[in-house]
């Protein structure tokens, strides 16, 4: 391949490049990169990451140090003149010994697994549907984002009133259509309450998934699929090789983000159920809020926060393991 062919513009056709052509190009690129004009990779990386690192260090380092410090001390609120007392791992063991913490972790796990799975599936389905061209698609895509744009407290209010046993829309519809005979206590039945809260969470979180998949689907260009077809690939193989392969990185990111988010949910249950009935919707976020702000046990709250963080981290590392087996350079 002659280099001069490309010198006038940066037009290339990536699918059209033969293997040999790619190899030559790569070699040429390397030689240019290694010449003195190009800034070295790690320097350039540092430069690009600098704003982010400065912001994160500036705003989060201290909060981290502070909250880690709280984990290991008893603030001695009853004797402020004594000052904070170092108590080692007592806060951690107190949390780990608290049955209510474990119950909240279990509830959170259910909440996270179901809300993440459902929002991923629903989001992917919505993305595939809205990737097809049809009239008013643009408007539909914008409307799709509405649940996400709703402030949390309004979201909770809407679902609370919709699921209200006597004045709610859902029971109203179900009674009218004869599907149920007496009102269902969506938020007063311990067996249904968590499912109801999960529903509200799915509603607010699936648009994000849909949007990300939609964006990812755009980069799977028509040409890419055409090229594969010319190569003789069947439509199942095209889906497997191209679509799935390109969606995997996005899926990983979405899983990670959605999981982190749903493990930390607090506002929704605080506004909808306050953890009731009988603690059936008390997520860890609410448990920690109570320890700190209501019981003034900030050390315990911090220790619990980091235990929760540990759990999230395990999940996230697990995802990475499973979905990033192939080395991505």
């Amino acid at each position: 391949m002659d280099k001069s062919k490309h010198s006038d513009s940066v037009v290339i056709q990536k699918e059209g490049l033969s293997m040999r052509g790619q190899a030559i190009l790569r070699q040429a690129a390397r030689s240019v990169l290694s010449s003195k004009k190009m800034i070295s990779e790690s320097k350039f990386a540092l430069l690009l990451l600098l704003p982010t690192i400065v912001i994160l260090l500036g705003l989060l380092l201290y909060p981290f140090l502070y909250s880690i410090y709280l984990c290991f001390v008893d603030l001695n609120l009853t004797k402020p003149w004594v000052g904070a007392k170092f108590i080692g791992l007592d806060n951690f063991s107190a949390v780990l010994k608290d049955g209510e913490f474990w119950l909240s972790m279990e509830t959170t796990l259910y909440f996270a697994v179901f809300s993440v799975a459902a929002s991923m599936i629903l989001g992917l389905a919505a993305a595939l549907l809205f990737n097809v061209k049809f009239r008013l698609r643009g408007l539909g895509r914008s409307l799709l984002l509405i649940p996400w744009a709703m402030p949390g407290v309004v979201n909770a209010m809407i679902w609370q009133t919709m699921l209200h046993p006597n004045y709610g829309l859902l029971n109203g519809v179900l009674l009218k259509t004869g599907l149920i005979e007496s009102p269902v206590g969506w938020l007063s039945d311990p067996k249904l309450a968590l499912a109801s809260v999960i529903m509200a969470q799915i509603w607010t979180s699936f648009p994000f998934v849909a949007l990300m998949y939609l964006a990812a689907l755009q980069s799977i260009s028509g040409e890419l699929i055409e090229a594969a077809k010319i190569d003789g690939a069947g439509s199942i193989r095209i889906f497997k090789d191209i679509v799935v392969k390109l969606l995997v990185p996005v899926t990983l990111v979405l899983l990670v983000l959605r999981t982190i988010d749903s493990f930390r949910v607090f506002d929704l249950v605080f506004a909808m159920t306050k953890g009731g009935p009988a603690n059936s919707t008390q997520l860890s976020g609410l448990y920690l809020y109570k320890q700190g702000f209501m019981f003034s046990d900030f050390g315990l709250g911090s220790a619990g926060s980091y235990i929760l963080t540990g759990f999230i981290l395990v999940f996230v590392l697990l995802y990475m393991r499973i979905l990033r087996q192939k080395d991505r350079v």
């Binding site: 490309h6 940066v10 790569r26 040429a28 690129a29 390109l246 996005v250």
Partner: peptide, 25 residues
């Protein structure tokens, strides 16, 4: 994290040819 996933789905050859054309990073 999100943008990284998008960037990684872009073929490397695009950039490499740009380097060849004299564009810096």
């Amino acid at each position: 994290w999100m943008m990284r996933a998008f960037f990684e789905s872009i073929p490397k050859e695009l950039e490499e040819s740009a380097f060849v054309d004299g564009l810096g990073r």
